[in-house]
Write a protein that binds this DNA or RNA. Sequence first.
DNA 1: TCCAAATGAGTAAACGATTTCCTGGTCGCC
DNA 2: GGCGACCAGGAAATCGTTTACTCATTTGGA
Lengths: 335, 335
Amino acid sequence: MVESLAMPTIYDVAREAGVSAATVSRVLNGQRTVDPDMVARVLTAVRELNYRPNAVARNLRRSRTTLWAVIISDIGNPFFTDTVRGIEDVAQQAGYSIVLCNSDENPAKEETYVTAALSEQMAGVIISSSGSAKAAKTLLDSPVPVVAIDRVLPRGTVDTVVVDNEAAARTATRHLLESGYERIACITGPEGVSTADLRLRGYVDALAVEPVVARTDFREQGGYDAMAGLLASPSRPDAVFVTNNLMTVGALRCLADRGIDVPGEMGLVGFDEIPWADLVRPSLTTVAQPTYELGRMAARLLVDRIAAPSAKPATVVLPAELRPRQSSTRPSPAS
Amino acid sequence: MVESLAMPTIYDVAREAGVSAATVSRVLNGQRTVDPDMVARVLTAVRELNYRPNAVARNLRRSRTTLWAVIISDIGNPFFTDTVRGIEDVAQQAGYSIVLCNSDENPAKEETYVTAALSEQMAGVIISSSGSAKAAKTLLDSPVPVVAIDRVLPRGTVDTVVVDNEAAARTATRHLLESGYERIACITGPEGVSTADLRLRGYVDALAVEPVVARTDFREQGGYDAMAGLLASPSRPDAVFVTNNLMTVGALRCLADRGIDVPGEMGLVGFDEIPWADLVRPSLTTVAQPTYELGRMAARLLVDRIAAPSAKPATVVLPAELRPRQSSTRPSPAS
DNA sequence: TCCAAATGAGTAAACGATTTCCTGGTCGCC
DNA sequence: GGCGACCAGGAAATCGTTTACTCATTTGGA
């Protein structure tokens, strides 16, 4: 077995086995029956030369790939961990591999990844939009199958998998009201990102009084700063509904830094489950999403879409579930 | 602007602009100076047709790509979040994009991703090996530039970026000893994974007495089960050094479920920083790694390796830092 | 003014696989 | 025995770029 710098091609294998390149291809792809003796010769040649088909050439010739781009907005968000697993499990089953692209809530990065996915002729795209209208338009103008997950695509009529954000936010807000909190604020994400807007709407909807809203990014530092702002404001709340997990952590850290008692002085409900919500003291009340199932469903929709590109786009809405824990359980005023 | 099913090719653009395909290519790649008038015509044609170069064809022709495969062992581990960011920042700078592959600590999956990376002619691979000797051999036998990160590659002489695991484990164990714990156990990962073995060695090294070791996977459930096992064993420890973050969470949850007081009844030090280590009660003593820097360094090594494929492989060892918090602070026996 | 060098654009040959088309041989059936 | 269907294998076209070559034209220097 000679090691050479250049990778062996199918012609090298053909020469070594004494057959034509077409035969090698047929052996490797099992398209047509090939003489058993030749099969054996080809396979040994493949092993001898340590031959590995060049996927780039194959993809060009076939003008399709077996890759999905999964464009998520924050790889550091545990929300996406299970979601990606769900996608991956279905993809594997269907013969696709996934490549993960982390846009980091940055529209420019998102656009880069979208154009890359199109240039690379990806078989499909699953995207949690960071709100870039340009990226959305690029995708919609292209023939590539797309599924939106977690967040709807701006102005997009594509397959979509989301949770019932508005209803879940209403439930969370009502829960705080029922716990006896009176001045409930909301910390939410950027305008134009569907989850931020819908969860805000649910909160406003459930509230009888004037809403108190802090808009920030969906990151931890944003949550920290927003919480600090609310604490300093004249309309200081006695409870807060935070519309994603990272901002919840930020808010929590802000409260801890200032020694503010949760849930005594400040009630807290966060959106998205957090792996350690029950380990922290006080334990965190959260709105849990069926993350793994979201991923599975998105992948299934993508498989179907690839099979039937012109079918009518579907929207799947899954329920989210309130998990009441200590951070929203107001001690009785007797104490 | 006519929408057609087939993507336009460079020849469509050439025809539209009234030039040759070569000229279009030159305009788009800025190789040589082209008549400004032609440049303008080409660019409008590109816009008209919504043309996007086919990266598959380009890669084939150039016989190289601008993609790096980053193969990590667990996407759910926050350790990798910052690491991937570090890699990404350097990659972007150097004109590469990264595709993330999650092996999930599964050697078979890892092998799949390795062969995929080679087939797809990736420009380089950064890998945190889950211990598959086969995957390692495949990589080493190939001409693709490889950098090992976090964990050394089995039997591999490649560029490597790690922390000083043994020293850090010694420090952590000594810290528990100095805090007054006497029967210190160690929960570590699979044999053959370098971090598991080296951290164990550091622990054994620092200990004067007979070590108590539980081997499991690097996952949360494994940590839970290992902790449960230690609690039930005759040689029940009064402190435990856990060699990664997920297992630490598992151990912590096990202790919480059984109502065992930390740090009173059981001291705890975990390897890897955890984003919420200071929010949990008791706060967690950890060995923090320079995660972002690990990623940056690995990416830099990869850039260098691509530039000089036959240079001597380097190993970079970065320091890890003990962050003492409550979980290892034994209350004075007076109480 | 003339020649060499430089420039700019087009033609066509790669890149490495898959797949269509074609050829020669075998088999089965009348 | 003859004819058509079938089969297996090879030659060559093809996917969409980039780029080595070619050639005409311009430029600059002597």
